[in-house]
């Protein structure tokens, strides 16, 4: 494990926990895309099926379980406990336009044509675009709460750190996963516009609002 890998994991964890605590503390999920959170729950479920077949380390297993539990808890809060605060009218991204092509692609391009590997590949492709419903919602309402932008920042930062980790592992360990790297590049590119707004607005104490 290297520093980019560890800080990537911690950044990912920070994002998930920030979102969960924001919803819990404010008793509201206003401004959060429920569809996006459903996609992330699907991402974790399909990627971590290897929990049932292989053991890597205590760290690996615990983090996977925490990610899965937090993502399901978030979905529960949005669609059950604080359903009344869910802003469904603005959460109108058509997720089937992501899930269907991504499903097809994972059948066509994968490392091994086995159920577990296809599902894992599916989760990597899906994760790279799973933020789109949330970004779409922000573009529709034209603004985001500052705490929501912190969530997005850590979620984006995690994948960028993982890319550096991939380069590190390629040079020092000789291992390389093209699928994960390409998906990671796509995922990071999708955050660039947001990163720009986060640095130029939110970090200077302003609210993230888009021009009408």
């Amino acid at each position: 494990m290297n520093i980019f890998w560890l800080t990537g994991d911690l950044s990912h964890l920070a994002a998930i926990v920030i979102l969960l605590l924001k919803i819990w503390k404010t008793r509201s999920c206003a401004g959060i895309s429920g569809k996006g959170q459903l996609l992330f729950a699907l991402v974790f479920t399909t990627r971590y099926l290897d929990l049932l077949t292989s053991f890597i380390s205590l760290y690996n297993t615990s983090m996977k379980l925490i990610y899965i539990a937090c993502s399901y808890a978030t979905v529960y809060l949005i669609y059950m406990k604080f359903k009344a605060t869910y802003d469904g009218n603005h959460d109108t991204f058509r997720v089937e336009f992501l899930v269907v092509p991504v499903g097809g692609l994972s059948f066509l391009i994968n490392h091994d044509f086995s159920p577990l590997e296809i599902l894992c590949t599916f989760s990597i492709y899906l994760e790279s675009v799973a933020i789109l419903p949330q970004l779409f919602m922000i573009s529709k309402t034209g603004e985001a709460e500052t705490i929501t932008t912190h969530y997005l920042f850590f979620l984006g930062l995690y994948r960028a750190l993982y890319l550096v980790n991939s380069i590190w592992r390629f040079y020092f360990e000789g291992c390389f996963d093209l699928i994960a790297v390409v998906a990671g590049v796509v995922q990071t590119i999708l955050y660039c516009d947001f990163f720009y707004l986060y640095i130029t607005k939110v970090l200077k104490g302003k609210k993230l609002s888009l021009p009408a």
Binding site: W5, S57, C120, Y162, C175, D177, A180
Partner: peptide
């Protein structure tokens, strides 16, 4: 290995 990198990552 090619895809070995992914197996121990999250």
């Amino acid at each position: 290995g090619r895809e070995a990198a992914r197996k121990d990552e999250l």
